[in-house]
Design a binder for these strands. Structure first.
Lengths: 198, 198, 198, 198
DNA sequence: AATGAATGAGGTTTCATTCAT
DNA sequence: GATGAATGAAACCTCATTCAT
């Protein structure tokens, strides 16, 4: 039945949204399952009809967010022909996303790292696709002679992501940020575009 | 009495080394205080004569490591006159340190982030001095006309650190790294030196 | 409507049979109501249209089994005139029943005892009638001068049942029994017949 | 240190005694670990310094009780030369023990059976030695021509134990017993001695 | 009558920390 | 100073039962 499926998806969404709010405010470890339940307007046990464990909620938040971000950044960069423009767009898109979805971003950046299991097993695979978008632009740049051939794309793409991530992390942790994320995105993109340039 | 002080410092060191080993192997959260005590050859209670809490051990590891790294990197870059050479040296020094002290680095990179308190309160201040070394080089570069004046040193220094940190993190988490940290350090330094260049 | 009653009885039977299977395989405590529902091909809630609680299913299994056994053993011993033959027949009948309905027997013997409530309130009354058959034979034996008058029938009948029950329990718990239940029944009957003899 | 060992043994005993009381009153399942802790005058966590789990307490009660009973019945029957006297003594001793240690007996008889694991794995081996004492007496009786050679000692010994056990169980569960356990012991012993007689 | 999604109470165990010796 | 036995708070998850559909 479609109605049941829709209801089911709704309740899942409802719990997920509640979890993002709660986790971002109190932190994953300090959040109790019952906190999420109360925030989501469901009973404790209901959580377990939709998620296998407390950890699974975190994983789900990560997966949904990554799916959205990957789709979003692909759409945003698809029509850009210049690989370097794609990098610029990527940086801005990433930061805009962090800015607009601060709670989600906070959970991803800060809380997710709590789980060693996650860092070892989920992060690499899930991040791969995201990193590929950067890597592909760099390789395309090399093919077109725009990027130095001695650049190692594997290293460069991760360095690019690391630069963005560190700035985003600081912005999230600092209540009163001293500069906008957009400016940071542009600065970082410019640094890399010039740094990669042939 | 100096002898007593020395003994005291020794036992503190002994516990700290034990903690680095234990935390890096099992992770901070999964390590019990009694694990550290056993590894350090002292009784559980003795730990609390030297550290206020389990968290305090982690903080101490961080502070000692940062003190050493700051002193080390300052010594290593002091005699270099070219600011850009200082950046190159910084990157290599950072990665060499990660490589040589993998256990310590793992605790810092992975386990430390577990603590929300830490990330919010300790990291910024403690990191400041380390970041200053990068920032100072960039500013010096701008003063000498080597670095674009439109570069925001606050952003650039953090981006530089973020790039190094992300690569280091991956190397620590990946048992079999696909490339050496030294190569990464050089690639990243080159990217930034070119990216900053006027 | 008789058809409705018949259907109702059928579904009740269906649930009961599923419960016997599930309980005997996983044990009462480890069996979830939903396991019984699935095995019986009904929804969880349906169980509660036929039984007041999970415990009530166990009680019902016990009552049905006892009703059958009492009717069976009465029929089997009714035509026997010698009270001692009745005891022999009783033992053999009891063990045959255990052997043929191992799943049911397992639930009765092993799982039923889990419930303190059951042991205190149900067992005595429900078992009474079964024990009466033994007791009546012993008293008849005393009346006919076949059994020592100093035998306390209340004690003897329970001892007889306990002997059978302990052997049956072991047979149920031991996957590979070393001797047949029928031989045990005969040995026990012989022991008691001789032991009671005047 | 002997003093430490003694203290350790004392606290273990203390917890064990508390557990016997609590379990026999409320039942194993309904007893919370904190109930045992409170009754034993220790903190919840202290229980786990002496026992691996709640189940382990039950096992320990069983093992201690069996050790005592086996030693006691061996001592009580050792000097008896007539095998049949040994059976009589065994029955009386068993029942006296049940009567004097009603709480312990209740835990053993009623609560212990809760654990399927226990019934399958611990009971058989632990009971073996106890049953051997009965079996040895029967075999000795056969060797001396006092017991029918067609008696299967394996079956007979278990039947004897089952008879005693069933009566004991009833006495434990029935607040107001209608007859003394000693009379029951004598009746059962007499039944079996005569039943076994050549 | 039948369903099955939702409920929410309930308890074992771990482990950082204390403090009497 | 050093010990380590004792403490006790804290929370995830299960599953029998209900009730709106």
């Amino acid at each position: 039945m479609q109605a049941a499926d829709a209801r089911k998806r709704d309740k899942r969404r409802q719990i997920l949204d509640a979890a993002i709010t709660v986790f971002s405010e109190k932190g994953f470890h300090k959040s109790r399952v019952s906190d999420v339940a109360r925030a989501g307007g469901v009973a404790d046990g209901t959580i377990y009809l939709y998620f296998k464990s407390k950890d699974a909620i975190l994983i789900a938040i990560f997966e949904e967010a990554m799916r959205e971000m990957i789709a979003g950044v692909q759409a945003a960069t698809a029509q850009l022909t210049d690989p370097m423009d794609r990098l610029r767009r990527f940086a801005v898109f990433h930061m805009e996303n962090v800015e607009q979805q601060r709670a989600t971003a906070k959970v991803l950046q800060v809380e997710l790292r709590l789980s060693n299991t996650f860092m070892k097993e989920y992060k690499p695979t899930a991040l791969q696709e995201y990193l590929d978008i950067i890597g592909d632009a760099i390789v395309a740049g090399q093919d077109q002679g725009l990027v130095r051939p001695d650049v190692n794309p594997i290293i460069a793409r991760r360095a690019f992501f690391g630069a963005l991530d560190e700035i985003a992390m600081q912005w999230i942790l600092t209540p009163r940020a001293r500069y906008g994320l957009k400016e940071s995105a542009e600065q970082i993109a410019e640094l890399f575009v010039r740094g990669l340039r042939a």
